[in-house]
Design a protein around this nucleic acid. Structure first.
Lengths: 211, 211, 211, 211
DNA sequence: AATGAATGAGGATTCATTCAT
DNA sequence: TATGAATGAATCCTCATTCAT
């Protein structure tokens, strides 16, 4: 009679909660020990549930890892897309600022949880052939996203008119990839800031001494 | 009969030969099916030896993968170092040419065998925690190598005096990484050439429209 | 409101009803998929109840199968006994007619539901050692029932005086068993009629050509 | 240099021997405990081998049971066919003698090993749907074999000219089935002999008192 | 009373590794 | 030295059963 919701909803919510906890614990285990070294029992034990319970929420071991990945990618994309539409920018300075914003967002995401990079960049592709393709798909999608920013810049005129947009997008993403990887060994935020700065200098100035 | 080497040596040579064949076949299987999906028996069968024989040449499954990696890294480093000492260059134009040479060499190495990238960049890190560290070590070493080139350029004066050498080296290597990864999906040599060109343009010109 | 029975009785009746439905559904599943391939959840789902409810009506999986069998045997015996008392007959012609009646009844029972033979003759004995004994008990009981008919015939005089009643009863039941089994593959009523006819001819005429 | 065969042959023979032992032990377990209650580990332990060894000889649990059945059926058919060709007989007396011979052979086969009937008649059909069909196929095949004997008798003239050969064959096999089943409860050879005698009396004289 | 979420014993199967031949 | 038969630890997954709601 109070603000209590219906029992159905409450049970449903609890179910979703456990489902989420399983995904997170699985992510934890996979990132820490690796997919193949992680048993379903490990995930269940770490979460404090029976391992049979796991199978009430996910089909099998392969199923959960798909959900883990989907979950992570969604979170990353959501964090990047926020307030960073390609069309929101109309000058080199604006783009540079946007680049910094995106870089900061990435640093925040990957910096907040080292397991993220470890799992996505080092572990995932080795799970099986299908996952390998999924990782490559992910890189392709990321390249397309970056390419859109470049396209916009070329159209508006603040980027080289003859920029090879697709190839350059991949190159830029490679630098981001390197930054994320470097953080795994050197989680110091200052080092991360330096990586961001270096990437932006390469992007805008190149590396050559000025004439 | 005179040129005949001693039997011991001949046997030894044969042994080394088989050892090498096992390493290559293991690489083949690991790259194709993945480390975890590959059984010792798969390697032995593909090579036409008994799988017990495998254990006369390598301690265990983990042992062989170490040797595979060592072998690959050696081959790659050898191909890169040849005629590309950092000190051999004294001008931006020379450096640019050297960059192109190195890029060509990389394209040749990774283009000649798609399993190389697949195994080193997608498979290896997922094998276990130790291998993950080894892969990260490899990235560190590669960054140091690239950094030497940049250092030299700064010292001689054809690169920015205040270049953040280490961070920039990682960024550049990230672009190379992206190029190698892109080749996995798009093995067309022309696409590869475009990637190289785009990377060099970013490095030397940046992406901004000229003033 | 006057004819209304007490609530206890009504609830009790409903309970008995569900109990019966569970038995029937279990029979259905066991006959269709087999005992071992049938899960409690399958039965519950097919009946549209929660599988926890099952355990409010039956101790466990083994319990239900006992009830299923008891239920089936009762139904079969009831159908056979009706109007077919051994003593009701006093001549060979009468016995022959009775045999036909019983055969028709059996054909009706087993013909009406192929799951019956499938479950009782092919599935039940494989459930476990105890059930195996129960099935053998059933064959013994059936032999005794048939033997009573033969006994009566010998006493009255229309059957061989020196008939080995027990062994012959088993032999006759074996023919019935064969008829029921043949129906599983050939459910055509005409084929069934032929089997009945053939059995009766063997019983009364033997197979030898007449002198 | 003695009578020793080549090593290859010896190893091969040993392999075949173990294979046979596994089949026999599996038969033993299946007949004793039932297919579903028998674990691969049970078979292996009873035979004194590691359970992994089992899988070097048979694909999986289902595979072995197929081989067990095939093996048994072969043995039974071989024992029956020996010296009992339908065409070898040309008179009722001869046929009666042949019937007795076959009955004796069956009694010997099934009497020598009670597990045979237990497994084939009570256990096998309950294994799964496919095996159920195989058992029914077996009954069909047996009916065809018996029918051939009857056909021959009709052709030659010592059996009823208008005998419903197929249906009668099934009926006769049903009596045999009953005899084999009865032996499970009453392994006394005398009882078995009585069953055989009763079956033959039914076949040749019928059960009716002589006019 | 009905439900279904949780549980874990149990069992099939794989595969790296050993070792007798 | 090469082999492959044997092994059993390890792991995924199922499903009968319990019990809190």
């Amino acid at each position: 009679m109070t603000t209590e919701t219906s029992p159905v909803t409450r049970a449903e919510r609890k179910k979703q909660e456990l489902r989420r906890e399983i995904i997170e614990t699985a992510f934890d285990c996979f990132a820490e020990r690796g997919y193949h070294a992680t048993g379903i029992a490990d995930i269940a034990t770490q979460l404090g549930i029976g391992h049979g319970t796991f199978y009430r929420y996910f089909e099998n071991k392969r199923d959960i890892v798909d959900h883990v990945i989907t979950d992570l990618v969604e979170r990353i994309v959501a964090a990047l897309v926020a307030d960073n539409a390609p069309e929101a920018v109309n000058s080199l300075a604006g783009y540079r600022a946007q680049t910094a914003r995106i870089g900061d967002a990435l640093a925040r995401i990957f910096g907040s949880d080292p397991r993220l990079a470890r799992f996505l960049l080092l572990e995932a592709a080795g799970i099986d052939a299908e996952m390998r393709e999924r990782v490559l798909d992910f890189y392709d999608t990321a390249a397309q996203m970056t390419a859109e920013y470049l396209h916009h810049g070329v159209r508006v005129g603040y980027l080289h008119a003859d920029l090879d947009v697709d190839a350059t997008a991949r190159a830029i993403n490679g630098m981001i990839l390197a930054a994320v990887l470097s953080e795994l060994r050197n989680p110091d935020p200052k080092a991360q800031a330096r990586m961001g700065e270096a990437i932006r200098r390469v992007m805008y100035d190149g590396i050559a001494a000025r004439a």
